[in-house]
Design a protein around this nucleic acid. Structure first.
Lengths: 74, 74
DNA sequence: CTGATATAACACATATATGTGTTTATGCTA
DNA sequence: TAGCATAAACACATATATGTGTTATATCAG
């Protein structure tokens, strides 16, 4: 796992992403398909288990018809 | 390296980061110290060679006295 | 020319994200 | 109950970010 000092950031982002995804009416599978990211990866991100990369975040933002700046406003 | 389809994103972000850093009057070494990220890593990010993680981006944003949302508005 | 500053470019070990696959758990509904 | 959808939880291989060092290059000031 990631450093202890980053866990809060990751769990916060995970909760935010889940909220945004559900607000968009998408399942994890939908988001996985639209962003071309494995569904397991989506779940791990929402649970705050991993530290996603810039390109992964960008793919998710696009699938949510949003942009990086808005996705990371949490 | 990262997938071909991500190179443009990474080089774009690298250029943006360099612009923001210089506008803040910081050297790579300054930013490295303030963000607690190795200076080599800062250089690699600015050159678009790597795909930085959310926590790395967050550390950089804080060192620039900014936030993720603003740092990723490019 | 010399020294200082800043950046690039190497090498290398280690941690971890990514990607794929399978299995389990949970809630809902017919 | 059975079936379906959704999400969590595993395992595993591979790619790559991270972190630490060292060396090279370029620019500029003295």
């Amino acid at each position: 796992m990631t450093k202890v000092r980053d866990r809060k950031l990751l769990t916060q982002f995970g909760k935010h992403l889940r909220k945004v995804r559900i607000a968009s009416g998408l399942s994890q599978e939908d988001l996985a398909n639209d962003s071309d990211i494995p569904i397991n990866q989506v779940g791990r991100i929402e649970r705050g288990e991993i530290n996603p990369s810039l390109s992964t975040l960008n793919s998710i933002a696009k699938a949510l018809e949003s942009d990086l700046s808005h996705l990371l406003d949490f």
